[in-house]
Design a protein around this nucleic acid. Structure first.
Lengths: 169, 169
DNA sequence: CCTTAACTTCACAAATTTCTGAAGTAAGCG
DNA sequence: CGCTTACTTCAGAAATTTGTGAAGTTAAGG
């Protein structure tokens, strides 16, 4: 046993090891389009045992200013990837990632899909429904409408699957 | 009938009207994370009757340089949203959006999902599978694996639905 | 094989985004 | 009621991204 490692059931939470995962996973999120700071904050929360961290803890762990934490958390709350909780009897705030909310958020691109649909409907009218371009937009629109319906039932199936794998919740 | 409008079956392709749709739809794509020029080029292709445009046509319509067209098209080809075709017996190239390839590409985030999964697997090992954080990552990983399988069958169902709506082939 | 057309690559200028320090605001605590 | 702590907002510096002009590359056509 190496000095300084705690002998828990799992691996020790070596800060360097944790940090490496956090940065690696954050990099994937960035590649998928998420801004850097939100990605890092989100990854840090994912990697925390409690699933919650305070602003100060995030700032220290990621070596970023309170302002950066504030901005990142606002972004994440807006897209429903984290929730903010006030610690009762304290002005300290805790940011939490819940196991389910994070994939809910992923499928909740619904607002975005809705706006795509609106733009496409406008396009069908503008270009004329009987033109080749109009027909292409009509088909694209139909696909998004189909997708919207599928996402709901997909999440239902996931919950069933999750209960199979990990037991009801 | 207004002067200058051609009396086709659909609406006339008034350049301003087309442009308004192109820019509006492109804006939605940008909001969803696509870089500006690729979004505009893609929207222009979607709105074209033939589904194909040359570099020169794109440059003129969108008022951008050949270099910008080149960069945008490279991006779009990389994510499989357009294909490039060489006009036989000419050094002119045509960029095409096919009706199906575009939603295939949307679901073909598979490469991205795969890398997320890799990062998560690494994380489970790093943090320890029996820690709360490790269990959270395990569940997240299971969700992505589930999603991967669902996407295939979802596309199958779409093709059936499309044939219902628009007829086969 | 030389000319020319069409696209690509490169270096740089411009615009945008990102992150910080500093000042501001709100809320617990004495 | 004022002090202090914790977060937020704001202005600006720094870094990144974006799009252009210009030079480079490839291939058709005489």
């Amino acid at each position: 046993m190496i000095d300084g490692m705690t002998d828990t059931a799992g691996a020790a939470r070596d800060p360097d090891t944790v940090s490496r995962f956090v940065e690696h996973f954050a990099a994937q999120l960035v590649e998928a389009g998420m801004p850097r700071m939100p990605a890092r904050v989100f990854a840090a929360l994912l990697a925390s045992d409690s699933g919650t961290l305070t602003s100060a803890e995030l700032g220290e762990q990621l070596k970023i200013s309170p302002a950066a934490v504030s901005g990142a958390v606002r972004y994440l709350a807006q897209v429903h990837l984290v929730s903010r909780e006030r610690e009762p009897g304290s002005r300290r705030e805790r940011y939490r990632v819940r196991n389910d909310q994070w994939y809910e958020a992923l499928t909740n691109r619904e607002a975005i899909i809705k706006r795509w649909e609106d733009a496409l409907r406008e396009g069908v009218v503008s270009l004329g429904p009987d033109t080749p371009a109009g027909r292409r937009l009509t088909e694209t629109l139909a696909f998004f409408e189909f997708l919207e319906g599928e996402l709901d039932t997909l999440m239902d199936r996931w919950r069933v699957r999750r209960d199979e794998l990990f037991g009801p919740g």
